[in-house]
Design a protein around this nucleic acid. Structure first.
Lengths: 152, 152
DNA sequence: CTGATGTCAGGCGCACTGATATGT
DNA sequence: CACATATCAGTGAGCCTGACATCA
């Protein structure tokens, strides 16, 4: 084990970076949707048909928090929900065409933010950074970003 | 410019990691001080005699937000403030012995968290990660973590 | 006056815990 | 019955903007 890090702790730097990212993200949200909305939509786009509870697990928030997001997105008709045939209690969500379209317009801006974030990084460095962050997240008990995280 | 990242955006991963870090941090705060308090104290320990405004800049929050923290820390006698001889309006803060002692007990736990975070990382990888994060932060307009950020 | 600082007041996005109803 | 899901309600930390007074 290495003795001491030189400056302020790494967790501090990560927290500050995350805050700045959120700030930038909210800057480019000309629509009146919030950061978590975008994350939920990105997740749904990546894995369609998730229930609210599953979506919450993917995004590592409580079902209650996610529910708030999902209800809002449903109200705006950016996603639809239908009960699972085998379990009426479970509502499986899908992005609507409007939702996918809106997401696509965001993706452009999100990619621009990512590019700004990674300015001056080589591709190898960027890949390493992503891998390190996912590794660190796993170390703290988070399921892998793209992982299935199935509990049952 | 690379075309598309494979999974969810990097900013997403960073945000989730930061949230988990905060969660872990608040877990180990048995004392009734909050995350920002610790960050302010770490910063003051690293660079004593900062004014509230300077401290806010170091931590990249507004003077109002930092003021809230500083007043609370002063109330608990974890730091003291004295007007700058050349400018009565500026209150320069220093950790009290009690503050430093408390900080030391935290540092142990924070280091433990850092170690958990970096489990499985080689020293070189850890260094690279820190450097990459600071680089990314700078890309988004943050002053460097350990930087002076002197405005005058 | 301009500019920086400290500080009071109010607001708000965001995620939490608790409780309840429903379906398997 | 236990168990998961959905959802309503309340709460709280954390950071913000606005306004105001003070000092070089």
């Amino acid at each position: 084990v290495p003795p001491e890090p030189a400056g302020p702790p790494l967790s501090y730097a990560i927290t500050r970076l995350a805050r700045q990212i959120r700030r930038k993200l909210s800057d480019l949200q000309v629509h009146d949707l919030t950061g978590p909305d975008v994350i939920a939509m990105l997740t749904l786009d990546h894995e369609s048909g998730l229930s609210n509870a599953e979506l919450a697990r993917r995004c590592f928030v409580t079902p209650q928090s996610m529910n708030e997001v999902v209800l809002e997105l449903e109200r705006r008709e950016l996603l639809t929900r239908a009960p699972d045939p085998s379990n009426q209690r479970i509502l499986r969500a899908e992005l609507t065409p409007a939702g996918k379209e809106l997401l696509k317009s965001w993706e452009g801006r999100i990619n621009a933010l990512e590019d700004a974030l990674l300015e001056g990084f080589s591709e190898a460095e960027a890949r390493r950074l992503r891998k390190s962050i996912e590794h660190a997240a796993k170390n703290l008990g988070l399921p892998t970003s793209t992982g299935n995280g199935r509990t049952s």
